[in-house]
Amino acid sequence: MSLVTATIKRDLVIAARNPGEWLNPLMFFLMVLALFPLAVDPDPKFLSKIAAGVVWVAALLATLLSLDALFKADVEDGTLEQWLASGESLFAMALGKVFVHWCISGLPLTLVAPLLALMMNLPDEAYSALFFSLLLGTPILSLLGAVGAALTAGVRSGGLLLSLVILPLYIPILIFGASAVYHAGIEMEYVGQLGFLASFLCLSMTLAPFAVAGALKLNLSR
């Protein structure tokens, strides 16, 4: 077993023993959704109009919340140093970490979102669009987020900084993800939006790990 697969397995075991790691973002997701009817308007017609955007914003924020811990522990306990010492490709390592992050944040969100969208009175036609846009979009959130997480891993109060750095980069995903769901809701074609998300996913899968690898090395310069 190579170090990369061993790391993926190990991180999944750690997540299984610390359920908070993947449960907390889900609960946060639920709570953010609950804020909108309370703060704006619980009228079902109004909710179904904003549901697409609100679900996507909440998913994005929940991902952001879970990103801060992505590399922090590894930097602090010396795991990162051992990665670098192992001579394994940092690119593969970064992809592995992102994969684990997606498994414990993006994937559960994708599975749970259709259920919670019921509370937002999402139009019936939009559920498959919601599922597929999240399935394609959340890995991009993890990939881009990993760049920010790697850059801020050595910074003491990195959480807020991470949001500041990453949120502008999330805008295209938010626009196309939410629009896919919205258009499905008004019975319009949404393949184009999904196509954009798919190509953005390919692009970030090839480029983001390089940035992550470069950023991780920064945390070892001392």
Partner: peptide, 15 residues
């Protein structure tokens, strides 16, 4: 936010 000048410059460049 970075504490060393070197890593501040590198992090800024990557971002």
């Amino acid at each position: 936010a970075m504490d060393s000048e070197e890593s501040a410059a590198k992090a800024g460049a990557i971002l």
